[in-house]
Design a protein around this nucleic acid. Sequence first.
DNA 1: CTGTTAGCGCTTTCAG
DNA 2: CTGAAAGCGCTAACAG
Lengths: 348, 348
Amino acid sequence: MENVFCVFYLKYPEGGERLASIKDVARQAGVAISTVSKVLNGYTGVSEKTKERVNEVIEELNFTPNAMAAALSSRKSGRVALLLNLEEGRAAVDEIDLQYLAGAIHRARELKMDVVTLFFSMLEDKGLEEVVNYLKAQGIEGIILYGMERDDPFWEALVECSAFWTVVVDAPFSGRKTSSVWIDQAKAQYDVAKKTIEENENCRRVLYIAGKEKSYVTAERIKGMRQLAGEMDLTLRVEYGDFSEKKARELTFLHEKETDVFVCASDLMAIGAMRALMEMDVFHPVCGFDGITLMGYAGKQMNTVRQNFLRVSATAVEEMARLMAGQPGRNRVLDYELVRMQYQDIIK
Amino acid sequence: MENVFCVFYLKYPEGGERLASIKDVARQAGVAISTVSKVLNGYTGVSEKTKERVNEVIEELNFTPNAMAAALSSRKSGRVALLLNLEEGRAAVDEIDLQYLAGAIHRARELKMDVVTLFFSMLEDKGLEEVVNYLKAQGIEGIILYGMERDDPFWEALVECSAFWTVVVDAPFSGRKTSSVWIDQAKAQYDVAKKTIEENENCRRVLYIAGKEKSYVTAERIKGMRQLAGEMDLTLRVEYGDFSEKKARELTFLHEKETDVFVCASDLMAIGAMRALMEMDVFHPVCGFDGITLMGYAGKQMNTVRQNFLRVSATAVEEMARLMAGQPGRNRVLDYELVRMQYQDIIK
DNA sequence: CTGTTAGCGCTTTCAG
DNA sequence: CTGAAAGCGCTAACAG
């Protein structure tokens, strides 16, 4: 296989492992390097003929422009950081994070952007100024923030200091350099709860097991529940389950007596509620939120809101591209789907 | 919050949003640029006194060296690509991929390396030469390959063409520019199967539901099973389940009659086997492999091999650092743990 | 339309 | 021990 190596670099026997540079292309094509740069960047002002010639040589030499040099020179790297709030011990939900990552990375590649993945934990021991300098020094121009919480002064400052283009996923921010993308959380929660209640009898008393109190989505979803409760004249009790299966389980035990239907702000919590009910050997309708694959393994069916996390994340990248192209920030609201998670329920 | 922004850049009212450069530091400290560079890179040949002075100014100006410029100039980026084989519709196993990612990203940050995440699917439509040029042009010097398969000429060529430093996870490669890290798959499979068989009575006839035929780990694990079968005088039947829950399920139905114990090459397949057995309303011991969290949701207990994917991946990054520091490649074998996955089994 | 030139911010000889 | 200077590979005015 050593010969494969040689094939690439045979053209530069003197320089060793050097790749073709813009200079080589210019020389070979008999033009100036600025001309090559122009065709590379699709600028006007190059005759069809030279453009063709240059492209031929590029092909021939297998030239790929050095991204770092281009970034240094133009002061534009097209580099974006994905900032994730990966928590330890929350493995079951990680499916969502991976989908966020996969969606963003794929779309970024298509848009010829460069993404790096960072975790909150890698930055949170530092001051804002230090973080900004670090990111800037890495050539990062934009940040996509996933799983931000309310009232976190650090991240809010990062977004608002406008040192970077920012796109916030699942939190309502927008501004000159900031866009957001999320689904209508209130409506989604309203819809899935309503469907569940209408499909079952005697669902007057609702326990809403909400997510983390500080999470942006939590407040929105509660809003949806309150509206539904008003419209359908329900008795609504709201408790925070913090997206934890265990807490949802405990809340279910605690409130089973005075509850007809359990509406949960995540599938994981819905699993917790279901298990508690099975353990008590009683039936009550339960519904979830997110549509994670994991649901399949819970051995039950329930209504849930399916978010397409891949698409949400891909959209976040598109919004970033839009911002970097000079468009103003905006709130982007995506669709969701109401589904009944199905799985061959073989556990009796 | 706009004022936060101002704090950073107040020092450069003329230039707008420019960060401090090495030049600024040099001027402010009254030394030459090259001197600053030397203290930045920890070179000898700078007096304690100037070093101190320079560090003071660096602190004062909040200077962070521009990574791209440094990389361009030194021709060393410290940039590594994580190359993952993320498959669609394999979401349940994705937990492993995310752990690989998290482990690598964290460790890389600690070692001041720069990582970018790529997927096989982003490259596989291109030729080797094109891929090499693309990666080189991005400043990538090393590649960590996860989930490589046997007899895949493309990836083998990528490793062997020695255009990059490579670390292969879960496949046995090593060479001048290549290291590998994995656990002793044969021994792990041997151990977990032996434990399961010894804990139960009448386990003469074993069905081994192996993984993907082409996967490197599969052959090793089968080797372990064959050894065990020889030593314990077992009847061993090997079938490929391709790491699919569904296939494992089908194989279990198919071979239940002539099987005493089901040894599976992944937890997901073990879940499939268990479910099939429950559906047939018969009991046979089952054991898995990987130790994924998902097991907790299957409503059963079983023996499995717990791999610490975070640590495996962190180790891969360390090996990469070792290679880039000029050390020769090697095979790194990590520990595993035999565990009985426990979960409050509330589904009767 | 094309070429010349001056950087981008840093590293790295090589004289002093 | 310190500094001047020549690049790294590319972009972006600005002349011709």
